[in-house]
Design a protein around this nucleic acid. Structure first.
Lengths: 302, 302
DNA sequence: GGAAGCTCATAGCCATGGCCTATCCATATC
DNA sequence: GATATGGATAGGCCATGGCTATGAGCTTCC
């Protein structure tokens, strides 16, 4: 990987001139198509030949001939110029900020329920930003956000880290999740969950930590089983393995699939806020602010 | 083939700087490995981003991040720089004038007999020039010499054309070629060939024209057969199809292969001079003059 | 929480160097 | 030999890349 950072002794312009001479068959004509004076082009080509140590052209009274060595080198010069052209066109297709996707990490307990709503609104935007959604746990989101692999993240409890913008896009209450045949009904309080085993997600899911934070003080007994996703969690509750806590946003999708009930909590403040975070110096902040706004709307917080 | 001769708006140096930033992870470090001050590098990269219309790097307090678009473009920049490096090394291997071969056309009635002798002497040169020999008829030689496809030509009767150097490297007498059982012996005069049919080479061979020039006035009857090469010609004479004329240089090789005799002419001046011609502005004239000298020596004309 | 430190951007100045016009030189053509 | 063509040379101008010094934003450490 050792790369020489010594600059090449020639310039793209010189290569352009040389190729133009080959194409046009003369210095004067080449100067014309290149839009410079003949002496300027002449001088540059002379310099090019000098630094390469190779005579590219054989000048004589009637036009020029390309030397054998020149033939070989000009082919490579064309290759260089072709690649610069390709670089230019690539840049041209990318210079529209809406052309390159923004990469947004979303935690798994939010993605399936919020993204469909957001996608719908994003589709109506003009110009429509391209968004790459990545379902990642909080820690991974923050890591990749810091390393630049993500442009933004939609997470529940961001570590306050320097250099990042943090926009609260909404708050979602939690619901108690119990089997359909469970005794509990209507609004419940946190304490009432202590009688059953508490089903939780795997390590790394912030919903697990949130749930524990709310239910921990009531000596709830954690089930020995852990779910790897919300749908799985719901199924386990439906199977009678215990009770759990899910965000309201997931209720519409998850309840109805299974014989469970999602009961509101009696207490205030049982829930979590969702944050849209991104590096404050991100060049995509225009798009990102738009996305944050859409997330807010999608959560019903105008 | 339509090529845009608009110069790219960026420079190789700018690409180098950008790549260096990606490699080192910072402007300062990149400036160091590039051997420039940080502000200079900073300015150039800013300009590069400007002309590309794409933000390549996301600057923040602790180093930089490469943007997604930057990632794509930097890959192409590396490609450009790789090709310039390849161009440089190619130039380096070619900058030795002895490394690139000189292309020399030689007429077919000379090549097989002179080149082995020349090759022997060339092999002793230090540095040893590389020579590409091409067996071509006079007209083709001159054509390709004019177009630059040949660097020099070894021919018998050059058209005096402007801009070309013409070095006489020797004179070779002609010999009369007769079957072994032919009546003629010893030195002959041109008239004595008029009794037999005259075997000639195909059109385009200058030896044909020379022979006709010498024998034409003696009303020699041309054989209806034509040979495509000297060896064939000799075989045809040996078969009794007629008599012919060959250059002395070919005698050693060709006579002995076949039952023929090569008789010297009584007249003075029956023969041809060999010329080494090349474009006077050729950058290879040093090598070419050397080759001309060797041709002279090989013909035994010191 | 304020000072030090790191990193990139800005400002101002200087010199290199690319470009231009005018002219010269070599060669080919008539 | 006169003219025309095509590249090289000369001299001057100005854009531009480079430098030093300094500023601004952010992080870290005492």
């Amino acid at each position: 990987m050792a790369m020489s950072f010594r600059n090449p002794d020639f310039t793209l312009r010189q290569l352009q001139y040389a190729v133009a001479i080959q194409e046009t068959g003369g210095f004067g004509a080449a100067a014309e198509v290149c839009g410079v004076s003949q002496p300027s082009l002449s001088a540059q080509v002379a310099k090019l030949e000098d630094v390469l140590g190779v005579t590219l052209f054989e000048r004589h009274a009637r036009g020029v001939h390309v030397t054998l060595a020149g033939e070989a080198l000009l082919a490579r010069m064309r290759a260089v110029l072709d690649h610069t052209a390709s670089l230019e066109t690539a840049a041209h297709t990318l210079d529209d900020p809406w052309a390159t996707p923004v990469r947004v990490g979303v935690i798994p307990t939010v993605a399936p329920y919020l993204l469909p709503r957001m996608a719908e609104r994003i589709r109506k935007l003009e110009p429509r930003p391209r968004v790459h959604w990545l379902e990642l746990q909080t820690a991974v989101c923050e890591e990749q956000l810091a390393s630049g692999d993500l442009d933004a993240a939609l997470i529940a409890d961001p570590t306050t880290t320097s250099g990042t913008e943090d926009i609260v896009v909404g708050w979602e209450p939690f619901r108690a999740l119990v089997p359909s045949d469970h005794a509990l009904k209507g609004p419940v309080s946190l304490d009432q969950l202590a009688d059953d085993e508490l089903m939780l997600l795997d390590d790394g899911h912030c919903l697990r930590d949130h749930t524990l934070a709310f239910c921990g003080h009531s000596q709830a007994r954690e089930s020995p089983y852990r779910a790897t996703s919300l749908p799985t969690l719901v199924q386990m509750v439906a199977a009678g393995l215990g009770v759990s806590v899910i965000p309201e946003t997931a209720v519409d999708v998850e309840v109805g699939r299974a014989p469970v009930r999602a009961l509101p909590f009696r207490e205030e403040g049982v829930g979590r806020s969702l944050h849209f975070v991104f590096r404050s110096r991100s060049p995509r902040s225009d798009v990102l602010l738009q996305l944050a706004e859409i997330a807010r709307e999608s959560l019903g917080h105008p």
